[in-house]
Every structure is written in C-alpha cells, then in structure tokens.
Design a protein around this nucleic acid. Structure first.
Length: 673
DNA sequence: TCCTTTCGTATTTTT
DNA sequence: TACGAAAGGA
C-alpha cells in the first residue's frame, strides 16, 4: 500500500459502494485493480471465489492474474475469477446451457464462420447477390450488442431494407441454434436475456459474484454494461476503471457514454481521478492534454508527471511514403548507434496495417530487427482453421460450418454438387449435415458413390470420437491427423516442403497445447474437458503466448489500436495526414473525436521521445495525391514542438539522412559487434 | 476439381 | 497499387 499515491490508495480502500476510477494513461490503473483485489481478500476478508475481475483481452486477464498472485499469500487467491467478458459469458452459458436450449459441446462461431453462414443464407433465402455480407454482419453484431432480438428488429424495421435484414437476422439465429452454436456476441447477449427472464438463475450468479471489478470500462458496449448492472444488483459492490479519452472502439459498439451513465444508474457513485502519470515526460503529457482538450468531456482531467520537461516533439515533413519509411528506419538506426538505445525500446505506430509494408522493407534493408503485432494471427492460418474445424466437429457434430470446412480436406471426392444435395436433404429432414448422413433414406437422395464417401467420412469422425472416450484424447487426435494424411495434403498445397513442414508443426503445436489443457488445465489447476479446451482455443484464451517474444531486441511495429496499454521509451507515429489520421471515413462520418482519441493514445505511449512524420505527397490507389498535414498537428502546443520541413532542415538533425551517412552508420555497427 | 484470370475494392479488429 | 474473391476454362 505504501507504494501507492493517495488517490490510488483511496481507490483501493473504497469498498462500500460503486466506484469509478478515472485513470488517465500511465496512471497505474492495473496496479489499482490488482491491489484492490488483494485488499479485498486480505484486509476485507472477502473470499477470492466471490470476487470477479473482468477485462477485454486475454492478455490483460493473464497479466492481472499474475500480478494478483504475486500480491496475496499462497492459496488465498484460489477461486478468484479473472476473465474476459466473453469468457465470463461462456461460463454462464455453459452452466445454464440447458435453460438456453443448447446442448453441451456447443460450438462458438468466429467471425469467418458467421460471415460464411450469412453469405449462405443470403443466397438460399433471397437468392440475392452476396455483396452486403459485411454490412449485414456488422448490423447483426450491432443488434446483439444493443440487446435487440430478431423479433424486436422486425418490429422496429422502417424501410423494406430494414425488414429484410431483420428477417435474415432471425434466420441467422435460427441456424445457429440448429447447429448448436453461438457467435461471439451471443456470449454476452444470451446471459443477459437469460438473467432477465429467470431471476432465480441471476440470483445464483449474484451469490457467486459479490464483488465485481471492470477494467477498460470505456470499451463496454450496451450488452456488457447490462450484464454488469445485472450482476452488481443492490449490493453495488462495483469498481470500474476507465479513461474516456482512450475510448477507441466505438466502431465495435463500445459506448464511452457508459462512464457518464454510471452516475445516473448509481447515484452514490464515488469518482476518483488518477492524474499523476508515471510514464512520460511533462512535455509529452502537455501535448496530450492540449490535444484532447479539443474534445468535449464529462469528467475533466489533466495528466501531470514528476519527470522533467523532456525533449520537444518533432514533427517531420517528408516528401512521400518512401522517404517516410526511409527516414524512420534511419532515425531508429541513429537512436541505436548514437544514443545506445535498444531496438526494443522503439515503436512505430500507424493508423492502418498496410502502412507497415514499406517500413518493413526499409527495416529489412538496414537489417533492423522488428516485430509486427496484430498481423496474421496464428488462428487465421489455414492449417489451424482446418485443425480447429476437426476439433469442433468432434465436440459438436451438428456444427455444419466445421463440417463443411473439413469434409473435403483432404480430398474425399465430396464436391459442391454432393454437398448441395446433402444440404437439401438435411433441410428436408430438419437435421444437421452430419446427422443426415446416418439417415437411411439418404440412399435414395444421393448417388451411391457420394453416399459412400460421406459415410466413410462420418465413420472417421465417429471412430475418433470413440477412441477419445476409450483412451487418451490427445493420442486419438494425433492418430486422426496421421490417418487423414494431413501432412501429404499440405505438401500438395504448399509452395515448398519447408512451408508444409512448418504448417504441420503448427498443427502439432495446437494439439500439444490442447493436450496440456486436458491434462493440467489453465494455471495447472484443474483439467479441462475436450469441449472446454476447444472453447478456450476459439476464444484465443490459450496459445497466444507464443507471439510474446518480448525479450528479443526488436523494434515494435503496431497500429494505434494495438498500442493501447503499452509503453515505449521512443515512439514514432507515421502518416500524420488528413484522410489517414483522421481517417477519411471518420471525417465523412463525423467521428473526428474518436480519431483524436486515437492520436491521444499514440502520444501517451511515449516515455521520453516522440516524433511524428507526414508526407507532402503520397501514392494512394496507384496515383500520387498531395497530402495535407493532419489537423491534429495544429492542436499540439506550439512551444513544445519542432517543425522540421523540407527545404529548411536543421542540419544537426540530418545526420541520419541520406545513403552516405547510412553507410557510415553501418561501418559503426560493424565495429560495434 | 483445380488452376488461371479477371474484377472490384480499399480502416481500426479486444473475442 | 495490391490483394482477395469469384468466375471461367481445361
């Protein structure tokens, strides 16, 4: 407790009512949550199993768990719930799945699955061109996040188009049910609806969760907020931590107004502001404050720090995107060689993922090691999707999406024609594709050859399932992937044998992780069932740690969104131009404030040095376009920035520019090592 | 069924 | 420009 400042201490010790902690960037909010959990357990005598902390990412949850266990003695943290919203929802659904009309082993559809389903429905039900799939998916998601059921959506429909979407939404949900599946948004919405209808079930969960803490509260959407409200009840033992200035997920349904709403819903709400920043120089904070003052605020807050004024922020104009990448690469090399800065202490932030491409090329050219976050994730890989589909099919044979993905992988001569007939047949008999295979009347509906192929596939799955029950499941799974000769299939479909080998390795890695979960469970506590482990995999709860090679000395490349919650001594922000940051679509949709927050997040990542680049011209969709510097640059305090424009450069600063100086730097580097 | 070509479209993406 | 998806041909 002695390590906390008075405000932080106040937030930790206030346990008698609802509390909102307005925690500015770098003000030690994670410390407050973890220490509060420890305080609740050790000083207030609340059993850990009655406390739940909710976060948005698995990473945050893991980190929090770890920090709590360092603070409390031995076993007293046992039973503590620290999980993501989605994981909490999943647990509720799993316990109450009978009430909700789902069978154990239900699948969780990811983004891609639901997209495919919507595409299918569009085609089948309305024989419509499949152009608006993304739009529909976003609309369904909005509805679910706003707790709008299909019936309500149909009632509320105004235009013909609304009605069509709403009907499709209903179909979509019905199909999910038929597949014994839920989607990501259901993980929150279904518990809320259940709690509304069955107060006795809600009471059960209220008895379990007696103290609730919510991290990154500004990112909650309506359904998540409702879930929080339901669980908290009249006891009002609630602590939420958030920063309205760091709300950058409105486009995903997050509602920063929830912070203000809290005051209305909990009249006794106590508000504690954390404004002391333990991360950045005074100048960086001043710039951040100055910028964000252009946004309206419900709660005024102003960050300050004990650290010195620090260096000015450099605003660097470059000719085009090529020189921009070159300049940043050179700056980083300069940092490394002149100031002995580690690569890992540098980060480059940008608005869109594509902006990293050129930079990567330049960094490679200069042999600067880098780490790209938020690129193609492990789970986006085809081989992992295949393996996951097999696993899902084993857990839930009615999962048609999983069935369709792997029924012909590897080749089993089951093509679109066969599947179309099977699908029609299944629809007539109101069963899943997998179940349809076992109906005797299938023989009349399909060609013998097709039926045989399908039955052979079904047998493979059932046989594996049987082996999973009889012997060790991990063994049975390994046998499955050997039996289908998956490696051969990869070999046929990969550019090189090495690539195939790597992909096969990924599959084995997945299975090994699964094996560990089945044997020891997460945190070595309790073994999971196959179904639980698969659910955790789909929610990315396990197996993401691989990417965290944090100790390697590499420059970090990430989007502004991905940078939230992180900090770096030296930060570069690139593409500070109108139409990029703020992004064109955001300008058109009147979402400048969110873009400004994005900029704010970027600035507050920096500890000691901060530089921003913007181009004079930039190639966009193949043609050269003149760029305008971002309006946000003008919102920074004049006295704290240095403008470096083309043609009037400061010679001192130009050491790292140009090929000649770079060659000299390389020589240095060679001598260095 | 698989490979090629062509066409259309361009944010951010916690789960 | 650059990528992924859909369509068309072998």
């Amino acid at each position: 407790m002695s390590q906390l400042n008075s405000r932080q201490r106040q937030a930790v010790q206030y346990v008698d009512g609802p509390l909102l902690v307005l925690a500015g960037a770098g003000s030690g909010k994670t410390s407050v949550i973890t220490r509060k959990i420890a305080y609740l357990i050790e000083d207030c005598g609340i059993k850990a199993r009655y406390i739940a902390a909710v976060t948005f990412t698995n990473k945050a949850a893991r980190e929090m768990k770890e920090r709590v266990s360092q603070l409390v003695s031995g076993s007293s943290a046992r039973g503590l719930t620290v999980s993501t919203f989605h994981n909490l929802g999943l647990n509720i659904i799993r316990r109450e799945c009978g009430e909700l009309g789902f069978r154990p082993g239900f699948s969780i559809f990811d983004d891609q699955d639901s997209k495919t389903l919507i595409k299918d429905l569009l085609f089948k039900e309305f024989s419509e061109a499949s152009d608006d799939v993304n739009l529909l998916q976003a609309r369904f998601s909005e509805w679910k996040n706003g707790l709008v059921t299909p019936e309500k959506a149909i009632r509320q429909a105004i235009t013909q188009d609304d009605l069509l979407s709403a009907r499709l939404y209903q179909q979509y949900n019905q199909h999910l049910r038929a597949y014994n599946a839920v989607d990501f948004d259901d993980l929150i919405m279904l518990p809320v609806l259940l709690f509304r209808e069955q107060p006795q079930i809600l009471q059960k969960w209220r008895d379990k969760i007696r103290y609730l803490l919510v991290d990154e509260y500004q990112d909650t959407n309506l359904s998540q907020y409702e879930l929080v409200r339901q669980l908290v009840a009249e006891r009002q033992a609630l602590t939420v931590v958030g920063d309205d200035d760091q709300s950058i997920y409105a486009w995903r349904g997050a509602r920063p107004e929830n912070l203000a709403q809290l005051q209305k819903d909990f009249p006794d709400l106590k508000v504690v502001k954390l404004e002391q920043n333990y991360r950045s120089t005074a100048r960086i904070l001043k710039a951040a404050n100055h910028l964000i003052a252009n946004n309206p605020h419900v709660f005024e807050k102003s960050l300050w720090s004990d650290f010195g004024l620090g260096e000015e922020i450099r605003l660097i104009q470059v000719r085009n995107e090529e020189t921009e990448a070159e300049r940043i690469a050179a700056e980083i090399l300069d940092h490394r060689l002149q100031k002995r800065v580690n690569y890992r202490d540098c980060a480059v932030l940008y608005r869109g993922n594509h902006q990293s491409r050129l930079l990567e090329m330049k960094l490679q050219a200069y042999q600067v090691p880098y780490q790209l976050s938020g690129g193609v994730s492990f789970f986006a890989r085809n081989e992992i999707k295949d393996a996951m589909a097999y696993l899902r099919l084993l857990a839930n044979p009615d999962d048609d999406a999983a069935f369709l993905r792997v029924v012909n992988i590897p080749r089993r001569e089951i093509g679109p024609a066969t599947l179309e007939s099977l699908s029609q047949f299944a629809e007539q008999n109101r069963v899943s594709l997998f179940a349809a295979i076992h109906l005797e009347s299938l023989d009349e509906a399909l060609r013998d050859r097709s039926v045989n192929n399908l039955r052979e596939f079904a047998h493979l799955i059932l046989h594996t399932l049987q082996r999973c029950e009889e012997q060790e499941a991990p063994e049975a799974l390994k046998l499955l992937f050997t039996a289908i000769e998956y490696e051969d299939w990869l070999l046929q479909n990969c550019a090189s044998p090495q690539q195939a080998e790597r992909r096969m390795g990924n599959v084995w890695l997945l299975l090994e992780q699964l094996e560990r979960m089945l044997e020891y469970g997460p945190a070595e506590e309790n073994a999971l069932s196959l179904q639980e482990a698969i659910a955790k995999l789909i929610l990315r709860d396990i197996l993401e740690q691989q990417n965290e090679e944090e100790n390697e000395d590499k420059v970090h490349l990430l989007t502004l969104h991905a940078s939230k919650g992180l900090e770096f001594p030296h930060v570069f922000m690139m593409g500070l131009e109108e139409d990029l940051l703020p992004h064109r679509n955001s300008i058109e949709n009147d979402q400048i404030e969110e873009e400004r927050r994005l900029m704010y997040v970027g600035i507050t990542r920096a500890r000691t040095s901060l530089a921003m680049t913007y181009c004079k011209e930039r190639k966009q969709f193949g043609e050269k376009i003149e760029s305008t510097p971002s309006r946000f640059l003008d919102e920074l305090p004049d006295e704290d920035v240095i403008w470096e424009k083309i043609g009037q450069e400061n010679p001192e600063r130009n050491r790292a520019k140009g090929k000649a100086t770079l060659d000299a730097l390389f020589k240095d580097l060679a001598e260095d090592s």
